[in-house]
Nucleic acid binder design. Structure first.
Length: 649
RNA sequence: GCCGGAGUAGCUCAGGGGUAGAGCGCAUCCUUGGUAAGGAUGAGGUCACGAGUUCAAAUCUCGUCUUCGGCUCCA
């Protein structure tokens, strides 16, 4: 008998050789049905692999990451089997799981090609194979045997993988007519897989190296129930509907022009209104926190970026320098605002009493992104950072950091982004040479970030080795309404630039000291942030932010004058309003303006004109009754204030 | 940058070796209306761009550009 410890620390006795599935069966039949994998002393195993010694185990279902990964991993094998059926002789690279689903990199036989149209029949075959309930069987073989096996199959991809493995650790998994080199774990049999969707097809280099052969990567996702697949497809549809490129076009927020150039967004009047609203709000918040607004040009002498080090590190992959008619004059489009801000700091001497000094700028920067990387507003070649650089003393670092976190909170809460976490990126302790600055400073800076987050009650994950070479950082991740994660704002501590720019202040001891610099951008970039906001809200922006807050709809042309009066009054009351005086019936005007996502529709006709009132209709909610213009203006301004309460409190 | 799909009216898309289509939008007119689509008429396109094949190319071939899905990259 062996002792099995469950996660609740209860201990049960089983015959040696018991499997995870048998343990689940002994607990409940429901669990036995749902369980997908088991971890044995921290290692995830197949459910039917015998356990022969005392162990601590944990059973995983679809609700656990480990359960899903096992499920999808087996699904990748199932897909491989189906592909091999249609394309005998296919060579298989790697078939790992991803966030949602899995892929397999395959090398199809000479002259064969997969297109999206072929996916349907592969899906069908997968379901057919799954229903046959093939057992998935694990076996160990020696390295020599493994090499021989895949040499026979002419699969040099697998041979390459095997040659890098340690003898004695090599396992195979077999199901039906398909055997694959694999570490596992896997499902007990194929029948768990009930629903299949192959999502896309793409080229990918073997091992991610462009010198290697291009393989065909097939992406897919599978589920244990058809209903889960249906839900997933609905989510995909919803994501498609919310695509910021589509909504941005519909709502006339931004556009691109071939003549202007790829990756260079043009902000249309309504998009500009939205962006200015965000910028003005952040400026107001920053003023409250003691920031000073500055402005710097879009180009700078190449020497500036040599001083900062950016030229050496990124120059070759950047937009190239701009030459002037004068000999030896060279400028760069600015890829960063910080060097300019450093020079502003250096423009006069500073006392320790003056610190922290905080320079903020909505600074547009230009970075040469590879053409294949450009994507709507989220990846562009010219974008505006809501940048600021804070220069402080070491003893001020933690407090300053906390204040930046406060600003981020105000911003996120004012925008309905309530679901966020943060990642603390620290040094790689095994690789101290990668970083500049003294170990002592790093210790202090890392401690300051960790403590600041803890004191602010921020939920964080910590990643070692993810810090920038010049200092540790904190990145904010926001979950949108569809549960997708976006990386937005960032706060970075920097010891490098103050050094390179020889920045200093005079301390209480009358000696020169080096300030610490914090880079921070709560939005990250205005372009990316607006894109995320569009997808999060599906274009239904919070009232305070939306480009057009109110539209006045006269019942007929006879009331256009009154509508104008209402609209003028609202515009004078700080409300963005317009009139729909088209020659259309009221039902039509309501429909069109609802579809334009305008939060409030004001209907005015004979009754309203006589009594000096308006009839209010709220987007998505319908008729709200009538009130006076004054009441309505007050009501809207209150709603805006409510939405910005994080700022006003 | 690399691999693969796509590019037809302002938008969404159909068509396809013999000079171009729909719906929405837009314009004009009729209608003057009460909470999600009133009616009529009309304008609008070098079928991304450049070469080639052909009696004839928007359609077939090649190249370029842009865009989409991935890969690699991201101060």
């Amino acid at each position: 008998m062996i002792k099995i410890t469950l996660p609740d620390n209860s201990v049960r006795e089983y015959e040696s050789g018991v499997t995870g599935l048998q343990i689940a069966q002994s607990i409940s039949s429901r669990l036995a049905k749902d369980v997908l994998a088991v971890s044995v002393n921290g290692e995830v195993w197949d459910l039917n692999r015998p356990i022969d010694q005392d162990s601590a185990i944990k059973l995983y279902t679809w609700d656990d990451r480990e359960g899903k990964e096992t499920f999808w991993h087996s699904s990748a094998h199932l897909m491989a089997e189906a592909i091999e059926f249609f394309y005998p002789g296919t060579k298989f690279g790697i078939g790992p799981t991803v966030d949602t689903g899995f892929y397999y990199d395959v090398d199809l036989p000479e002259g064969k090609q997969l297109t999206e149209k072929d996916l349907a029949q592969i899906e069908k075959k997968m379901i057919e194979l799954a229903r046959q309930k093939h057992q998935i069987v694990r076996s160990s073989i020696t390295k020599a045997e493994a090499l021989e096996m895949f040499t026979d199959k002419n699969d040099e991809l697998k041979q390459e993988l095997i040659s890098e493995l340690e003898d004695g650790t090599i396992t195979l998994y077999n199901q039906g007519n398909f055997t694959d080199l694999c570490r596992g774990p896997h499902l007990p049999n194929t029948s768990y897989i009930k629903a299949v969707k192959l999502t896309s097809i793409a080229g990918a280099y073997w091992r991610g190296d462009e010198k290697n052969k291009m393989l065909t990567r097939v992406y897919g996702v599978t589920f244990p129930k058809q209903k889960l697949l249906d839900e997933y497809l609905v989510l995909l549809e919803e994501a498609k509907k919310r695509d910021h490129r589509k909504i941005g076009k519909e709502m006339e927020l931004f556009t691109f022009s071939q003549k202007v150039g790829q990756g260079l967004p043009l902000w249309l009047p309504k998009g500009t209104q939205l962006r200015l609203q965000l910028e003005d709000f952040l400026k107001k918040v920053q003023r409250k926190f003691g920031y000073q607004q500055v402005m710097t040009p879009h180009i700078g002498d190449v020497e500036l970026y040599k001083t900062s080090g950016h030229f050496q590190k990124y120059g070759a992959d950047s937009f190239q320098t701009i030459k002037t008619p004068a000999e030896g004059e060279e400028y760069m489009l600015k890829p960063m605002n910080c060097p300019h801000h450093c020079e502003i700091f250096a423009s006069k001497p500073h006392s320790y009493k003056d610190l922290p000094i905080r320079f903020a700028e909505f600074g547009t920067v230009y970075r040469y992104e590879q053409s294949g990387e450009l994507h709507g507003l989220t990846r562009v070649r010219g974008f505006t950072q809501d940048d600021a650089h804070l220069f402080c003393r070491p003893d001020q670092l933690k407090d300053e950091f906390k204040k930046v976190i406060d600003i981020v909170f105000i911003i996120f809460n004012s925008l309905g982004l309530e679901n966020y976490t943060a990642q603390i990126s620290l040094r790689d302790p095994n690789n101290p040479d990668k970083y500049i600055g003294s170990a002592e400073n790093w210790d202090k800076a890392e401690a300051a970030i960790i403590e600041a987050c803890a004191e602010k009650g921020l939920e964080t994950v910590t990643e070692l080795g993810e810090a920038a070479f010049y200092g540790p950082k904190l990145d904010f991740m926001v979950k949108d309404a569809l549960g997708r994660s976006w990386q937005l704002g960032t706060i970075q501590v920097d010891y490098n630039l103050p050094e390179r720019f020889d920045l200093e202040y005079i301390g209480a001891d009358d000696k020169r000291h080096r300030p610490i610099m914090i880079h921070r951008a709560p939005f990250g970039s205005m372009e990316r942030f607006v894109a995320v906001l569009i997808e999060h809200t599906a274009g239904k922006f919070p009232l305070w932010l939306t480009p057009d807050q109110v539209v006045v709809l006269p019942i007929s042309e006879k009331y256009n004058d009154y509508a104008q009066k209402v609209s003028d009054f609202l515009n004078n009351s700080d409300i963005r309003s317009l009139i729909d005086d088209r020659n259309e019936k009221i039902g039509r005007k309501i429909r069109d303006n609802e579809l334009k996502r305008i939060p409030y529709l004001l209907i005015v006709g004979e009754k309203e004109a006589e009594t000096g009132t308006i009839s209010v209709r709220k987007q998505g909610e319908g008729d709200k009754g009538s009130m006076s213009m004054e009441e309505f203006a007050q009501f809207l301004n209150d709603e805006v204030k409510e939405q910005l309460s994080a700022f006003y409190n």
